[in-house]
């Protein structure tokens, strides 16, 4: 079953086109990695699907629900707000800079949305949150404030926060880019565990080795277009495009 269908998506900031004719389909349980040089539109793509940016054209379908469609006149229109809200609940988002709420402790960070948005009662939400924290290896940090945690711990809390709404899909926008190199491992481990559980995920990343290990499919973006797409075997193998090889070469050299 297709969880995410993107067709001919485009996005412009003023006269600058940052996304051009992007199409891909994510099936249930798949893990996609989006790689590419800085400024290639990777994050913008995630943000368009997550409604943090307004797309300029194309179509997006999330879990079978139309989010962005072309109407009879050929104009690109968004679904009504109630549908958009429903769709958003299907997607959890993990940010590069965690964006935890600094004035709330870890438990409150995770329970805030289930209590306010899903109207769960607090004790039930806290029970779920504690289970998630256990999974993240952070049971002892429930009462801590974000400023008391390391970057890796903050990022694990933000993953738990996204999972607390029980989304169908999880998006990661460069989840390890703000972390010290020795802390990236703990985040990649969590993502691998989620992949093993069958979570559908789309991950924008600069961790090439990780993308190769965990992803079912890889999108290579450059200049706002999909420059190459396929399985890790293809992109990291001999059949990749010249440009992909050239891009990946730099990482192999490091």
């Amino acid at each position: 079953m297709a969880m995410l269908e993107v067709k001919n998506l485009s996005k412009s900031f003023g006269s600058t086109e940052v996304l051009k004719d992007i199409s891909f389909t994510v099936e249930k349980g798949e893990v996609w990695a989006i790689i590419g040089p800085s400024g290639s539109g990777k994050s913008t793509l995630l943000r368009c699907i997550n409604q943090l940016e307004k797309a300029s054209g194309g179509e997006i379908k999330v879990c079978g629900k139309d989010m962005l469609i072309k109407n009879e006149k050929g104009k690109t229109v968004y679904a009504p707000p109630s549908v958009l809200r429903d769709i958003r609940l299907n997607i959890g988002l993990v940010f590069q800079n965690f964006n935890l709420f600094p004035h709330m402790n870890v438990l409150r960070n995770i329970t805030e949305a289930p209590v306010r948005v899903l109207k769960k009662n607090r004790s039930e939400a806290e029970k779920t949150a504690m289970e998630l924290l256990g999974k993240m290896g952070l049971s002892d940090k429930a009462k801590a404030y974000p400023c008391e945690l390391s970057g890796g711990q903050q990022q694990r809390v933000s993953i738990a926060r996204a999972l607390a709404l029980n989304p169908e899909m999880l998006f990661f926008d460069e989840p390890t880019s703000a972390l010290d190199p020795e802390l990236t491992g703990e985040i990649l481990k969590v993502i691998k565990e989620l992949a093993a559980e069958g979570m559908t995920m789309v991950i924008v990343t600069h961790e090439m080795g990780f993308a190769r290990d965990v992803a079912d499919r890889i999108l290579f973006m450059e200049g706002g277009v999909i420059a190459d797409e396929g399985t890790p075997e293809k992109l990291f193998g001999e059949n990749a495009s010249e440009r992909t090889k050239q891009f990946l070469q730099r990482f192999k050299n490091n």
């Binding site: 997550n50 997607i91 940010f95 800079n97 964006n99 805030e112 949305a113 948005v117 926060r161 996204a162």
Partner: peptide, 16 residues
């Protein structure tokens, strides 16, 4: 801005 975006990604409305 990230605080607004985090809240939005958690489907919180403007008042919340």
């Amino acid at each position: 801005k990230g605080q607004y975006e985090a809240a939005a990604s958690l489907s919180m409305n403007k008042l919340q």
